[in-house]
Design a protein around this nucleic acid. Structure first.
Lengths: 197, 197
DNA sequence: GTCTATAGTGAGATAGAC
DNA sequence: GTCTATCTCACTATAGAC
């Protein structure tokens, strides 16, 4: 069974996704988690500490479902580097509760990080890891002849992940439909890697 | 001379750029604008109204400097559609006070719009206009043989502008250097439009 | 680890004079 | 249009019992 600490973090992600970092009320989280405000301060020291822990929690959760998606793709036999890359990127543009929640919260925290050094560092690490992981898949795709040569995998990966973030924010803010966002991303992959097979 | 109302809006942009929408204090803006809080409520009704007006103010300002940059490019004789497209997009990734301020504030308001229907509508209009303008330049570039055929100008424009937003946010949050962000954008243009002439 | 109760305060908003 | 004064309250954070 999930510890109260965990319930609090889950509630925090939910609340951030629902009303943003600014709209996050400690008391509300407590209520949603079936805990008291006192306990939140006991575990996380203060509001900022709670935000930090929440960011870590989101990162972990994202890692987990990414790994899971890749494993599933591998099982389905559809496991070349290029489709793994595509699947992993498209993962962020999906209307699942968990993913929508994660994406929204992630965007919020990213935006907050502009003004908060503490958050910034954590965010930087997570982003760098994501970019590196994607760069590796781009390189693999190149080796397998599934992607145009002559472009730096790091550059492509950085562009595609930044694009995902941009599209994601437009999707979440209702400026862009989900299907269109996914199509655009697929189009970008073609533009960056070439037509593939 | 600028009206007090204008001074308040200028101060608001500055404050948002400095400490985010979350960090925006009505009293602080009043102080910076040399006005009273009462006046702010007189002009803008409430905090949310101030945010709305600020978003409009930023949009206008962005339109102005974009138009100006294009005019300058035209004067310099460097006026083919493709370089206009490139210049206009790169404009958002520039370390000028005004632009940095505008970009930061824009990003903040975009992020806030996820939770604020009112802001959302205004934002949507501004984004759509930007995308449409870029799409037109893509189409012109295609006609002039400066861009690959067979891709929808709207798609390319939507991707490039979303990418600019993504890169901009990484730049502003310190995750990405400015020069690298600009290089990545140039690379994306090449990937989308082809090598040019 | 967890709760209840409460202290403290920051900041949005309003009233009313000029 | 603009200011001063003030009200109010929603939220963070702490103290202390269990």
């Amino acid at each position: 069974m999930a510890s109260k600490r965990d319930l609090i973090l889950q509630a925090a992600v939910g609340m951030i996704a629902q009303s943003g970092v600014r709209g996050l009320r400690v008391e509300e989280i407590a209520a949603k988690a079936g805990a008291s405000t006192g306990l939140i301060y006991y575990h996380f020291k203060d509001r900022a500490g709670l935000l930090r822990a929440t960011l870590d929690y989101i990162s972990d959760r994202a890692d987990r479902y990414t790994a899971q998606a890749i494993a599933m793709a591998k099982d389905a036999g559809d496991s070349d580097a290029r489709s793994e890359l595509e699947q992993t990127l498209l993962l962020e543009l999906q209307d699942t509760d968990e993913i929508r929640e994660n994406s929204t919260a992630w965007g919020e925290l990213r935006a907050s990080a502009i003004f908060d050094t503490d958050l910034r560092e954590r965010l930087e690490g997570a982003t760098a890891a994501w970019v590196a992981e994607m760069a590796e898949r781009v390189a693999l795709a190149q080796e397998a002849g599934q992607a145009r040569e002559g472009v730096e995998p790091e550059d492509v990966a950085e562009r595609l992940t930044a694009l995902v973030e941009g599209l994601s924010e437009r999707w979440l803010s209702g400026t862009l439909g989900l299907e269109r966002a996914r199509d655009l991303l697929r189009g970008a992959i073609v533009a960056e890697l070439g037509p593939g097979r």
